[in-house]
Design a protein around this nucleic acid. Structure first.
Lengths: 108, 108
DNA sequence: TTGACATGAAACCAAAAGGTTTTATATGAT
DNA sequence: ATCATATAAAACCTTTTGGTTTCATGTCAA
């Protein structure tokens, strides 16, 4: 029942462009749902669902304040993504080295 | 009609755990479809579809060799993911700094 | 206390995702 | 030539996703 038991993980959460844009907005500053949804052509309800998915992935958190719910970014789960990525960096680093090597050969 | 016109982008491609495992297998070495699908409980056809999606995102490429098609990893599109991530690193770095600051205060 | 506002929740819907089975095609081996 | 192998392609199915509309609830303001 650890982190992996969540219904929506980080990889799924960031797969949707609308959710990535929501994260970008919340990176600027915390905002209530209605302010967030004002940036999109879709309904407030749809945005609310996206926020639920981001919440499950723990990428955002909402605090109730009066009749509003203010969401803020929680970037920590992105470290999982970073770790995943770091495994693959060795490969593109190798490619760049090969490319550099070829260029150097051609200049001689 | 640029890169963004692809039906499946990197974010979507890596959202599925099966596809991430396929990438991991291809990171070890290039493999034909049947060898890849042998690692999974689902059908070869299903794996083939996943490979198509990974191909669209240009994360893998298949070369026909005899009656086989050998797939290999193409990690370059992951740089897009890395760039996207780098924007958010400032936030968790800040958090770590704040945490460190608190700890230092408590030690005085 | 009455209304406007902000959100939550439920019911519903179409399209996409992830899978299967079936059929076809190309290639290698005998 | 024939047969087994490796993949491709198509048809089909179920569940999930991303959206809508409608209705309910809690809170602020007058």
């Amino acid at each position: 029942m650890g982190v992996s038991a969540r219904k929506h993980d980080v990889f799924q959460a960031i797969a949707d462009p609308t959710r990535r844009e929501v994260l970008r907005l919340l990176a600027e500053k915390e905002r209530p749902i209605s302010e967030i949804s004002a940036h999109f052509p879709i309904s407030r309800t749809a945005i609310s669902k996206h926020l639920h998915i981001l919440s499950e992935a723990e990428l955002v958190k909402g605090k109730k304040a009066g009749r509003e719910r203010i969401y803020h970014l929680q970037p920590e789960p992105l470290t999982e993504l970073k770790q995943w990525l770091s495994y693959y960096e060795q490969f593109w680093n190798n490619k760049l080295q090969k490319l550099k090597y070829i260029v150097e050969e051609e200049n001689e």
